[in-house]
Amino acid sequence: MLSKSQARLFFWVGTVLFSGVFLWLTVDTIAQVPDQTHQQNMSAAVVRGKHIFDKNNCMGCHTIMGEGAYYAPELTKTYERRGEAWLKAFLPDPEAMYPNARRMVKYDFSEQDLDDLIAFFKWVGEMDLNGFPADPPLKALAEPAAASAAGAAGANVLAAAPAVYGQLCSACHQLGGTGNAVGPALDGVGQKYDAAWFNTWLADPQAVRPGTAMPRLPLSDADRDALANYLASLK
């Protein structure tokens, strides 16, 4: 039967041995991380972005690389999913984009802060994370055939959309069965309004309809015109 001194030996040998292996693997990891995370792309903006992320405890609601809290969306692929234009429109006033949904603090980010945060998200999104986050394996099964058919029709309509539509509008509106359902669907919206109306509306939604949940998006004049013409064409 095991004696106390044998048990003590078991403890010390096990602890020292496995601590040693752990330290060795740590040294190897530190050597490999720069390659795997594309550290050469870690610009000053990325570093500033990381510290803005830390300073405001974004991990207190969100996860990044799957780490953090489970109250708000995973941010590892947010750059890829949302794009720069959307992030820039969303971050200055989160509640405007998601009225009546779970709330996010309205931070006082400067233009530079926004650029830094976006650079940080881009860098994290490009790392090799050994396959995380995984593509949803049941996504194809989850979409019934009818929706795929509508999706195909929708794809034609969407093919004509200006780039900014996919970056901003589809985050809240559905068109041809694609997009989120925060605001009303946009199918056939061109039957109700013309391009001039859309132009005024997009320039300042509150002026047209006070109290609306529609945010005032940071669009260039050219993008706004393109969008207004496109929406008016949806008959």
């Binding site: 693997l25 190897d28 990891t29 490999q32 991380v33 795997q36 995370t37 690389m65 799957g66 780490e67 790392m127 090799d128 994370l129 050994n130 396959g131 995380f132």
Partner: peptide, 10 residues
């Protein structure tokens, strides 16, 4: 260390 950008052997 699975998904944080560390080597795959983890």
């Amino acid at each position: 260390y699975y998904w944080i950008g560390a080597p795959k052997y983890w």
